[in-house]
Amino acid sequence: MTTHAPSTPNPSLRKFAVIGNPVAHSRSPFIHQAFAAQTGMSLVYDRLCAPLDNFAGTVKHFFADGGVGLNVTVPFKEQAWQTAQDGLSERARVAGAVNTLWMQDGQLKGCNTDGIGLLNDLERQGQNLAGKRILLVGAGGAAKGVVLPLLETGCARLHVVNRTVEKATALQTAMTDAAPRYTASLSAGGLDSAEGHWDIIINATSSSIDDKAPALKGAHFAPNALGYDMFYATRPTAFMRWAKDAGAAQVCDGLGMLVGQAAVSFQIWNGVLPDVAPVLAALRAQLHAAQ
């Protein structure tokens, strides 16, 4: 994907934010300020809590007020896709969800960097996904952004489960329509269809915000399996604790994914890809200090 850094008359006053609801817990300001320091750039990065019924209006006001870029988090990634419909990257178009917004030549643009962030973090965890059996829990915006990148790794099977079966099967249909070559390896169903032995189970739901784990009856971890929660916290999440008790050899949260996807967003906005490792280490230390 070819991207261009947005132009602005005064780089020292460039404004960015993460938009969501809730958003007070977000570490995105720390991450992007660290990226800016690393690359010698000046920026302002805030948290923006949008009303659940006025996401599009909040986005419009942000950019009209001189904003340059927005990261999009729960629960607005699908709404962001609709809002940026005329300016979607190929990655975002296929995903049906957007986590990065910016203005370019007067047009709102949208991309999805979640998949790259997840795959890079799984690689850091020593995971080779080729031939693996993967269970993806959730079918919302967070899940949509990672389905195609996961399939592209050559995994043997990707099964998407969701509390609302229709959302999972709709995601499956949309993805196989967009990439029919993966029809045989992608399946979907309700939480009660999670039964089996999985090499990787990924929680893409927001359940950990409420310190709860999805009810995955019959789901088991294969030997040397990984339980991965896209959410992160100062202590192991409810999903990580469940995964450990259920036999996962390795568990981790989504902090590395968060920093990884943020780095690609930063590159889209600023034309330079920052180094993830020192920022991830600093953020992890900050979270440990807050325990």
Rank of each mutant, 00 (worst) to 15 (best):
T2W: 11
T3L: 13
H4E: 15
S7H: 09
P11S: 03
A17F: 11
I19G: 09
P22N: 07
H25N: 06
S28W: 06
I31T: 03
A34M: 02
A34Q: 02
A36I: 00
A36F: 05
G40Q: 10
L43E: 02
V44A: 15
A50L: 01
L52H: 05
D53K: 06
N54V: 04
G57H: 10
K60A: 13
K60I: 09
F62A: 07
F63L: 00
D65R: 09
V68H: 00
V68A: 03
G69A: 01
L70F: 06
N71A: 13
K77N: 00
E78D: 00
A80G: 12
Q85A: 15
L88S: 01
R91E: 07
R93N: 04
D105F: 08
K109D: 11
G110C: 08
T113L: 12
D114Y: 13
G117Y: 10
G117D: 10
L118N: 01
L118F: 02
L119F: 05
D121N: 04
R124W: 11
G126A: 10
G126I: 09
G126D: 08
Q127C: 08
G131K: 02
R133N: 11
I134T: 01
L136D: 00
G140C: 05
L148D: 03
L151Y: 07
L151Q: 01
G154S: 07
A156M: 10
R157M: 08
V160S: 03
V160A: 01
V161F: 02
V161H: 01
N162L: 00
V165L: 09
L171K: 00
L171G: 02
T173E: 10
T173M: 10
T176W: 00
A179N: 03
P180W: 07
T183M: 12
A184W: 00
S185E: 05
A188D: 03
G190F: 03
G190R: 02
E195Q: 14
G196P: 08
I202F: 12
N203H: 05
A204N: 04
S206W: 09
S206C: 14
S206T: 14
D211S: 14
A213G: 05
A215S: 13
A215C: 11
L216N: 02
F221L: 10
A222Y: 04
A225L: 06
M230Y: 10
F231L: 15
Y232M: 06
A233F: 11
R235P: 13
R235S: 15
P236D: 12
P236W: 05
P236S: 07
F239Y: 11
M240K: 03
R241D: 12
W242F: 11
D245F: 09
D245R: 14
G247I: 05
A249G: 10
Q250I: 00
D253F: 06
Q261W: 05
Q267R: 13
I268W: 12
P274G: 07
P278F: 10
P278R: 08
V279R: 04
A281M: 14
A282D: 12
R284G: 12
A285G: 15
L287F: 14
L287G: 13
L287H: 14
Q291R: 13
